[in-house]
Simulated scan of single mutants.
Amino acid sequence: MPVSRKRATASKRSQASKARKAEALAEGADVEFDGETYTIPPYEEWDIDALEAMDDQRYTVAIRGIIGDDQYSTFRSRHSKIGELEAFLTKLMDVGDGKGNS
């Protein structure tokens, strides 16, 4: 396959991925993590404090602000390690494509 055709195919996949992420932000999404499903609300419903916490690298506050107290309590009851928190945050940001981090 010629290089230009490979680039076009990769570009189409990238555009499709961005479209799925944009849709998830607009509509909300479910995120599966360690056998539990967490619901992320649409981006417009995220609390400004959560975004500011993300900017300030206060990730536990940001996660709690995005998924809410009940879901955060569920997460904390099952996970107590920083690595687990980082993996969960990565999952959340994969859905949001890092949009909350300026």
Rank of each mutant, 00 (worst) to 15 (best):
M1F: 12
M1K: 14
P2R: 15
V3W: 15
R7M: 10
A8P: 08
A8C: 08
A10E: 15
A10P: 05
Q15T: 11
Q15I: 11
K18A: 13
K18I: 10
K18H: 12
R20H: 10
K21V: 06
A22F: 04
A22T: 15
A24Q: 10
L25P: 03
A26Q: 13
E27V: 05
G28S: 00
D30M: 01
G35F: 03
G35Q: 12
G35A: 07
E36R: 07
E36K: 12
T37Y: 03
T37D: 09
Y38E: 02
T39M: 07
I40N: 02
P42T: 07
Y43C: 01
E44M: 04
E44V: 10
D47W: 05
D49H: 08
A50W: 08
L51T: 04
A53C: 05
A53L: 00
D55Y: 10
D55F: 06
Q57H: 11
R58I: 01
R58S: 07
R58C: 00
R58V: 01
Y59K: 06
Y59G: 01
Y59E: 08
T60W: 10
V61A: 14
V61F: 11
A62W: 05
I63Y: 03
I63D: 05
G65D: 09
I66T: 00
I67H: 05
I67T: 05
D69Q: 13
D69L: 08
Q71G: 04
Q71T: 06
F75K: 09
R76I: 09
S77Y: 11
R78I: 05
R78H: 14
G83I: 08
L85H: 08
T90H: 12
M93I: 03
D94Q: 14
D97V: 01
D97F: 05
K99C: 00
S102N: 13
S102G: 10
